[in-house]
Lab assay of single mutants.
Amino acid sequence: SKICLVCGDEASGCHYGVVTCGSCKVFFKRAVEGQHNYLCAGRNDCIIDKIRRKNCPACRLQKCLQAGMNLGARKS
Rank of each mutant, 00 (worst) to 15 (best):
L5N: 08
V26D: 14
K75N: 07
R52G: 11
N55A: 09
L61Q: 13
K2C: 08
H36V: 13
H15D: 06
C40P: 00
I51P: 05
A11H: 05
V26P: 02
K75Q: 15
R53P: 09
K25I: 08
K25W: 07
F27V: 02
A41R: 12
M69V: 03
C4D: 02
A67V: 09
G34Q: 10
K2P: 05
G68E: 05
C40S: 00
C14L: 06
K25Y: 07
S23E: 13
N70V: 12
V6E: 00
C40L: 01
Y16N: 05
A67D: 01
P57F: 12
F28P: 00
C59N: 01
C14A: 11
I51W: 04
D9A: 15
S1Y: 13
L65G: 09
K29Q: 13
Q66Y: 07
D49Q: 04
L5I: 07
A58T: 03
I51E: 10
S76R: 06
S1H: 13
Q66C: 11
L71S: 02
S12C: 05
G17Y: 05
C59D: 02
D45E: 14
G68H: 02
D49C: 02
C46N: 00
R74G: 12
K63F: 04
L5V: 04
Y16Q: 08
H36M: 10
C4E: 01
I3C: 04
G34P: 03
G17K: 09
G72W: 05
G34R: 14
I3S: 05
C21V: 00
Q35P: 12
C21A: 00
L39A: 07
E10M: 04
K75F: 04
I3L: 03
I47D: 08
L61A: 03
N55T: 14
R52T: 10
N70D: 14
K29V: 07
N70F: 08
S76T: 14
I51A: 12
Q35M: 05
R53M: 04
S1I: 11
C4Q: 01
K29M: 10
I3E: 05
C40N: 02
C46I: 01
E33W: 06
K29Y: 15
D49L: 03
R52C: 10
F27A: 02
V32C: 06
A67P: 01
G8V: 02
F27M: 00
C24F: 00
G72F: 05
K75L: 09
C40T: 01
I51F: 08
A58E: 05
G22C: 04
A11T: 09
Y16R: 08
L65N: 09
D49V: 03
G22H: 06
C24N: 02
N55M: 07
N44L: 04
A67I: 08
